[in-house]
Simulated scan of single mutants.
Amino acid sequence: MWTITAILLASAAIAILELPSLMKKKLYKEFVIVCCLVVLGTILSIAQSLHMQLPNPLDLITFVFQPCSDFIQGFLH
């Protein structure tokens, strides 16, 4: 429970420090992107702290490029 509280406090601190300056400079697209990234990071951090099984991005990359690798290695052997 303490880890979730720490994660939420850290996310709130990041938002408090970053978001007002983006609004002052009227950087609305950047504001939305920073909000999305902070929310996504917060969700993933909380899920990780709860020991949930998270997908590995490397698995998707391997799935996409493995056929290409097999095809090229077929020519080399």
Rank of each mutant, 00 (worst) to 15 (best):
T3P: 01
I4M: 08
I4L: 07
I7V: 08
I7L: 04
I7F: 02
L9V: 07
L9I: 13
A10P: 00
A13W: 08
A15K: 08
I16F: 14
L17M: 14
P20M: 01
S21A: 12
S21H: 07
L22Q: 11
M23D: 05
K24S: 06
K26V: 05
Y28D: 00
Y28L: 10
K29W: 10
K29G: 09
E30P: 05
F31I: 06
F31Q: 07
V32W: 12
V34P: 12
C35F: 11
C36P: 00
L37A: 10
V38E: 15
V38F: 04
V39D: 02
V39Q: 02
I43P: 01
I43E: 00
I46Y: 00
S49E: 11
S49Q: 04
S49N: 07
L50A: 13
H51V: 04
M52A: 11
M52T: 08
L54A: 05
L54D: 04
L54W: 06
P55C: 00
N56L: 11
L58H: 09
L60I: 09
L60A: 09
T62G: 00
T62Q: 09
T62I: 15
V64M: 08
V64D: 01
V64A: 04
F65K: 04
Q66C: 00
Q66L: 15
Q66S: 15
P67M: 05
C68N: 13
D70E: 15
D70Y: 07
F71E: 15
Q73F: 04
G74A: 07
F75H: 07
L76A: 09
L76K: 12
L76S: 06
